[in-house]
Amino acid sequence: MTKQLSSFAGKFFLSILVIAFLASTVAAQAADVKLDLQLIWGTNDADSPNPQHKRIEQKFPFKWKNYFEVNRQQVSVAPKAMKAVIMSPHCSVNVSNLADGRIEVKLLGKGKKVRTEIHPLASGMLVIGGDATNDTSWFVVVKEVKP
């Protein structure tokens, strides 16, 4: 009797696991991914020389004191689809929804591929950037907009 019960319980939990795994896989594959993209400039200066730049309060784990948003866009990417997002005249980002809970982010500078990153959405936001002149920095922030 005990053996039958433990065998039943084992099968029951295994079935639950399989169903949960399949459901999560199907859900991850079926949904569009809504993404928020920001091009940000980091500086120690108090103000940006460009008045159109919007100061942002979000703190980043970098050495600069102030951050300014140069451009911000939101896109929705269907499963297995790609969207090209122009962030500045020379910086664009191609985002692909890999339909398995990950996105592929391709950063292009002057039309040339700079970096391709496969990013699991569950691990949070993705920041791709580098140093710029006069001890400043630039970076693109890609984060999922959750419904």
Partner: peptide, 26 residues
């Protein structure tokens, strides 16, 4: 803690030329 992955790029030839030119921040 910050829920953040950072990919920091560095130009192998000229330290900042490509990156700064690429986005024309200023």
């Amino acid at each position: 803690a910050d829920g953040m992955t950072v990919v920091w790029l560095a130009d192998n030839s000229a330290a900042t030329e490509v990156s700064s030119e690429a986005i024309e921040i200023q």
